[in-house]
Design a protein around this nucleic acid. Sequence first.
DNA 1: CTAAGTGCAAAATGTTTGCATACTT
DNA 2: AAGTATGCAAACATTTTGCACTTAG
Lengths: 139, 139
Amino acid sequence: MDSHIKYKTRQREILLKYLESVSGKHITAGDVCEFFREQGVSIGQATVYRQLENLVDDGVVNKYNIDSNSPACFEYIGSDCHAGGQVCFHCKCEKCGKLIHLHCDELACISDHLYKEHRFRLDPLRTVFYGICEDCAEE
Amino acid sequence: MDSHIKYKTRQREILLKYLESVSGKHITAGDVCEFFREQGVSIGQATVYRQLENLVDDGVVNKYNIDSNSPACFEYIGSDCHAGGQVCFHCKCEKCGKLIHLHCDELACISDHLYKEHRFRLDPLRTVFYGICEDCAEE
DNA sequence: CTAAGTGCAAAATGTTTGCATACTT
DNA sequence: AAGTATGCAAACATTTTGCACTTAG
């Protein structure tokens, strides 16, 4: 694999370290910028966007496009992710906009059903379940 | 079901007619505006966005978010697929773009699981399963 | 007559780009 | 030294919003 990274820079290092530290969470480019600003760490937002894109190309993080208006989400997966078989599904609340992600093996039944009954191979990376979340339902 | 449409306006009618005439195709809000401009039909772009969103809420068209940069796509699906109180799920092939309609009782387990285990109320009108269809898989 | 929809232009949003400077190797 | 990355600010594209006006019921 030809990696897109050529130089090892301070910015890439701290970005990667941060993403790793919040692995399992969905992080937007804005989140990243805000975090570093709060920490007093100086990093340009253009760099954040550029490095995030590099990391996606290198397969170290995943990028999710939930809505066309809401910002893209990134999630650290490391380099040996796809072998781990840890698939995750996403639920998006239509009311509050919250993004829930489920690392749920039980949801495999969905893939199974779609494949066995309909010969459709579900792509969990791109599929988003829309609906109403628990909190919003209580109203 | 309470529809979001209250008034039947000229703009909604021509928009719906246009979308129906290109059903099977992916149309962006920009495409819609351009088409009407070329036809000499006057319609404000804000209205296009607002009515498209209404149509999505009504389940008459689907909205697809491919990238966060590229514009959202809309596709006519009609109202007859959930006419008899029977909602249907949609699968979209990422390769050939085919839209497959599945009827609900077969997939009730998904809603059930999401609700029982995760307290999430799935909205089948809005949710689209992405993946690879049978035909495209044979390659 | 009233509620809902429209259209314009302006604002908001998220992301990308040009370019001079700084850093890695 | 050469090639690459950074940071800023400006550019960009898409979508949303405020508000006065029009239209459907």
